[in-house]
């Protein structure tokens, strides 16, 4: 385990400390989901696992993409690709706030010098048909995490309730490391033989993606892909539960959910290309929500979702 009495020196050290902290608290340390998502919540380890009655504890880093936030790597705080750290524990333990504060201490925030506050912030994801109550957590006036007790996901009541923590890693790390511009942040140890900054790793990709997201992504293709993902999701879920080949009951909730994730990301890209009008926007969000809801319906029909034959 890393030495928590000293201040961390790099972006990756903060991630590593969070990983080992939550591992020590009993979470399964999972890997990022291998698809483009807008936030860590989209990872099936959160969205789907928040459903049903099976207990669950997972933590992971999730690369997240918000095409409209691209600034060609020039804005000190805004990125189209960034990282979230996500923790989901079901049922939410009674000491979740204390566990969370422990994680801040683990990454070098001295509770005796800083002002930590839980400020009302109810969370709602119109695309996931999900909502919960909780707070944004402030450290000296800066939002460092979202803390949510999930009440509903995909239109289903959550019982038991999951406690979800989301850390915006770049912002949190910049604060802990005292960096003003994200691109200047040390990515690995600044004394390493090959010291890399966040900019060394990501400045170029921010530029490339910003150009593609805003100006050249083929909107005709994206619109087609959106429809295809939507169709495939419905097609997957329309299959009978009984697999004719193996004779087993196999409800394909996860493959269907992949199509939902895909549709959601394509919608974000279309939004960044500016081809979705205000009225259409609501309609698209409604379509993605309908997919999420069907996937949630399917998941609770699986063993992981609490289905008992």
């Amino acid at each position: 385990m890393t030495d928590q009495t000293t201040a961390p020196r790099s972006f990756q050290e903060i991630i590593l400390r969070l990983q080992s902290y939550w591992a020590s608290k009993g979470c399964a340390i999972m890997q990022p989901y291998d698809m483009e998502v807008g936030a860590g919540t989209f990872h099936p380890a959160t969205t789907l696992r928040a459903l049903g009655n099976r207990h669950w504890a997972a933590a992971y880093v999730q690369p997240s993409r918000r095409p409209t936030d691209g600034r060609y790597g020039e804005n000190p705080n805004r990125l189209q690709h960034y990282y979230q750290y996500q923790v989901l524990i079901k049922p939410s333990p009674p000491d979740l706030q204390a566990l969370y504060l422990g994680s801040l201490a683990a990454i070098g925030i001295d509770m005796d010098l800083h002002d930590i506050r839980f400020v009302e912030d109810d969370w709602e994801s119109p695309t996931l048909g999900a909502w919960g109550l909780g707070w944004e957590v402030w450290c000296d006036g800066m939002e460092v995490s979202q803390f949510t007790y999930f009440q509903q996901v995909g239109g289903h009541d959550c019982a038991p309730v999951s406690g979800e923590l989301t850390y915006g890693l770049e912002r949190l790390a910049m604060y802990v490391l005292g960096v003003e511009h994200v691109m200047d942040m040390p990515f690995n140890d600044p004394d390493a033989p090959i010291a890399l900054s966040y900019g060394d790793v990501f400045r170029q990709t921010e530029e490339e993606y910003a150009r593609w997201n805003f100006d050249t992504a083929d909107t005709g293709m994206l619109l087609r892909h959106f429809e295809e993902a939507e169709k495939e999701c419905a097609a997957i879920l329309s299959q009978p539960a009984q697999d004719p080949k193996t004779g087993k009951r196999i409800v394909m909730a996860h493959p269907a959910y992949d199509q939902c994730i895909k549709a959601s990301h394509i919608f974000n890209l279309l939004d960044a290309r500016g081809v979705i009008s205000v009225t259409e926007r609501q309609a698209y969000i409604g379509r993605v929500r309908a997919l999420a809801k069907q996937c949630a319906d399917a998941f609770v029909q699986t063993a992981a979702g609490g289905y008992a034959a």
Binding site: N77, D112, L113, H114, G141, M142
Partner: peptide
């Protein structure tokens, strides 16, 4: 003027500096 929820050994210097940075952003 910001209102913190605690006293600190450094008379709020760290808290104030943090708030100031957030405000500047």
């Amino acid at each position: 003027i910001t209102v913190a929820n605690r006293e600190t050994a450094d008379q709020g210097a760290t808290i104030l500096a943090g708030n100031q940075r957030v405000l500047s952003a």
